[in-house]
Design a binder for these strands. Structure first.
Length: 771
DNA sequence: TCCGAGCCACTTTTT
DNA sequence: GTGGCTCGGA
């Protein structure tokens, strides 16, 4: 074991005869595994950190420790994260430990921001100028579209979006056009995929631009072509730290491996059970094969959980154990009590939203803060039911996600002006704002400019300069184009003397862009103007236009209003890394979660990823975790009957409490003339409720004492209303699925209707409208 | 240039 | 059910 002691471990041991006594204060309060993760500074380390096990603490302490021990200076540490938020938090927490030296951590950031930093220094190696523009997803799609157009392909059949995503996929896997296999080239446009990819890359070079994928891919190319450059970084980075390693894609993996090859002081932190980004290129494989990639790697498991109750942990652990491809670890806690995971079956999506709303109000009544509660959904379309319900209740809520500030039309327009002023070759920016506001540069004129630029192989601005001196354009268009180009030139000149803020104000004013929205009478105009002011505000925080534009492209965080007192509503993906005392997990139905589409497209591995998503969901909860599923759900305007999610069956019985309502099934059903409402649904599909989860739900609800309704009052309402028929025999009705018909038999809620097109069917009254 | 009709698709989404 | 996009006409 001694041989495996790291420099820092030996250093610490050598500090004093009693190492314990000499241990620095920052090691106090760490458990054994965390401490091991902090001290094992030398050689490859894989830190498998389960949910809620104090990962962030361990890794920030580790970095601080390296600095305290003077094993490296701040600028010799490479620490990569996926999100800006994670990078920021890490920096703050290290700062709290080491003080102002934290400012020297210039290589702490996201993969993309660090990739961009390196690329700016060696841009010429891959044919770019150091001032290259970073394109966002939207620009990428536009560019891809142009490439498809230029190749004369049917744009309906082959969308820009499609090409962009195929190219993205290749870039995520570290493939430059020459490395894409012939077989894969068929993934797009019948074999033209690769030539389109090459054309796309050529266009990027002409535009002096890089997309997100390029930021890393170009790095790899540079490292491979110039071993001397690689060696320089290998020497520089004495210690490397990678957060969320399970989310790395192949390109990121290759990048890391190149950099770590020499010193091998790489510490990857992650949790294979929380890998939920496979669909955008993440390879769980990376974390699974770490020990193979780095022989002699030390694997440290953080399994002691400080977040959740035993029942929540047991539910999560049992569920995730059904996955085959995992390294395996078991969370444990010293906590002993706490409530079990509640599983509730409801009639439909609306009722689910209503009951969760009631639960939230009940918790609030008990003194729980609203921001202590979160509703986590699989897909954003599920949010609507909750928003509607919360609005009705007047319950403050906050949606995390959605369109981000820098993705909004007006913000992108304003930024496009700035981009064009900074880099005249930025054709995408030119295209975007040349005629916004309208300045007589309509589609006709723009097409002529494009055609000329393409023929001469020039950027649009350069082409425009020539065109305004020629007679190729009509007098009106020529004048309009001249005024536009002169405006750009004037701003570019002004940029020398003005602060970014003043320049931005000047541009927004002189271009007429602000007036464009002032004159717009739509309801959106006000908020658009506000957002423009926000842009000016944001710009004024930067010393140079270039710095601002990089910020926009790379650090464009969603602006999350930090207002307390609101229930959280977000997707499971967005919830990763967060925790809440009370978590609601609605929509656990086959088809919704696991998502049918995911299963169709990804098969067994995709199912495992869905299961990991369920695991992430459950482990967000500290005290209370409430899963629910609906028997019926309206999707895309159609009613669908659904099966409880297989994940519900995978939860351990003893950690779960099934909470159901009378009137749905169980006791109250017995009081109905012949069938429960659920029996009525069985008429349509007999096997739906013949599965273990459902049988268990029924059995549990029949057991007295276990199935106490969560909200008694409401539940009783449901059961009381269960007997009242809504339509009389002979009534004309409308059904979403079957159309018009006439009621021929009524038994409580269960009606037999003779439909005009599909004949007699047994249906439930709630699916019917009067007609 | 702008607006409405028709058509389509529709998980997750950082950088 | 809904929103986004395209196309054609005013």
């Amino acid at each position: 074991m001694n041989a495996r002691l790291s420099i820092s471990e030996r250093a610490l041991a050598g500090l004093a005869p009693a190492a314990e006594a000499a241990a620095p204060a920052y090691l106090e309060g760490l458990n054994d595994e965390q401490r091991e993760a902090v001290l094992a500074t030398e050689g490859p380390v894989l830190m498998l950190a389960g949910a809620g096990t104090g990962k962030t603490r361990a890794l920030t302490t580790r970095l601080a420790h390296i600095l305290f021990m003077r094993l490296a200076e701040p600028w010799q540490l490479l620490a990569v994260t996926f999100t800006n938020k994670a990078a920021r938090e890490m920096k703050e927490r290290i700062g709290a430990l080491i003080g102002e030296r934290v400012e020297g951590l210039q290589w702490l950031g996201t993969f993309h921001s660090i990739g961009a930093q390196i690329l700016r220094r060696h841009a010429e190696v891959v044919g770019l100028k150091p001032s290259f523009t970073i394109l966002d997803a939207d620009d990428q799609v536009r560019l891809a579209k142009q490439v498809i157009e230029a190749a004369g392909l049917d744009e309906k059949r082959w969308s820009g979006r499609g090409l962009a995503s195929v190219i993205d996929g290749w870039k995520n896997r570290g493939l430059t056009p020459d490395k894409v296999s012939a077989n894969e080239a068929w993934h797009f446009a019948e074999g033209k995929g690769v030539s389109l990819y090459s054309a796309y890359q050529e266009r990027l070079k002409t535009l002096n631009a890089a997309d997100f994928g390029d930021l890393l891919l170009h790095n790899i190319t540079i490292f491979q072509r110039h071993p001397d450059i690689l060696a320089q970084y290998q020497d520089k980075f004495r210690y490397m730290l990678v957060d969320e390693y399970q989310d790395t894609n192949v390109a990121q993996y290759l990048w890391l491996r190149l950099l770590a090859q020499k010193r091998r002081n790489i510490c990857c932190v992650g949790d294979d059970d929380q890998s939920i980004y496979g669909w955008r290129g993440a390879e769980v494989e990376n974390i699974l094969k770490f020990e193979k990639d780095f022989p002699g790697a030390r694997v440290i498991r953080l399994e002691r959980n400080y977040r959740s109750t035993p029942a929540i942990l047991s539910a999560a652990s049992t569920l995730i154990a059904a996955n085959k491809t995992r390294l395996g670890k078991t969370l444990w806690t010293e906590a002993t009590d706490g409530e079990r995971v509640k599983v509730r079956g409801v009639w439909d999506g609306e009722e689910e939203a209503r009951l969760i709303g009631d639960d939230i109000e009940a918790e609030q009544g008990k003194g729980r803060g609203l921001s202590d509660m979160a509703v986590l959904v699989r897909a954003s379309f599920q949010m609507r039911a909750f928003e509607e319900r919360f609005l009705t209740l007047g319950l403050p809520y906050r949606v995390v996600g959605g369109p981000r500030f820098y993705e909004r039309e007006e913000v992108r327009d304003a930024v496009a002006y700035l981009r064009l002023v900074r880099s005249a070759d930025d054709d995408l920016a030119f295209d975007r704002i040349a005629n916004k506001p309208a300045r007589k540069l309509g589609g006709q004129t723009m097409q002529q400019i494009h055609a000329f630029a393409r023929a001469q192989n020039l950027p649009l601005t350069a082409a425009s300069r020539i065109l305004i001196e020629s007679d190729d354009l009509g007098a009106a268009s020529r004048g309009a184009l001249r005024r536009f180009i002169e405006m750009i030139d004037r701003w570019a000149g002004a940029a020398e003397n003005l602060s970014p803020r003043d320049l931005t104000e000047l541009i927004l004013d002189e271009s007429g862009y602000t007036d464009y929205w002032k004159n717009n009478k739509s309801a959106k105009a006000d908020s658009k103007l506000d957002n423009l002011k926000e842009v000016v505000q944001a710009v004024s925080e930067f010393d140079t236009l270039a710095a601002y534009l990089d910020h926009v492209a790379l650090v464009a965080d969603r602006s999350e209003a930090e207002a307390g007192g609101a229930v959280w509503l977000m997707t499971l993906h967005a919830a990763k890394g967060l925790e809440f005392p009370v978590v609601f997990l609605p929509g656990w139905e086959e088809g919704v979660f696991p998502s049918q589409r995911s299963l169709d497209e990804g098969g067994a591995p995709a199912l495992e990823e869905e299961r990991r998503l369920a695991y992430v969901g459950i482990t967000r909860a500290r005290e209370s975790c409430r899963v629910s599923f609906a028997a019926n759900r309206q999707m895309y305007g159609r009613w669908q009957t659904s099966l409880p999610s297989r994940f519900i069956d995978e939860l351990p019985e003893d950690a779960v409490e099934v909470v159901s309502q009378p009137g749905l099934y169980g006791n109250a059903a017995a009081s109905l003339p012949s069938h429960s409402r659920f029996d009525a649904t069985r008429l349509e599909e007999d096997s739906y409720y013949d599965n273990p989860g459902w049988r268990r739900a029924r059995a549990a609800s029949a057991r007295p004492g276990v199935a106490a309704p969560m909200i008694e009052g409401r539940a009783r309402e449901v059961s009381v209303s269960a007997g009242a028929p809504k339509f009389a025999v002979g009534a004309r009705v409308f059904h979403d699925k079957f159309g018009y018909g006439r009621v021929i038999l009524a038994e409580g809620q269960k009606l037999t209707v003779d439909f005009e097109h599909s004949g007699a069917k047994k249906v439930v009254d709630s699916f019917l409208k009067g007609a």
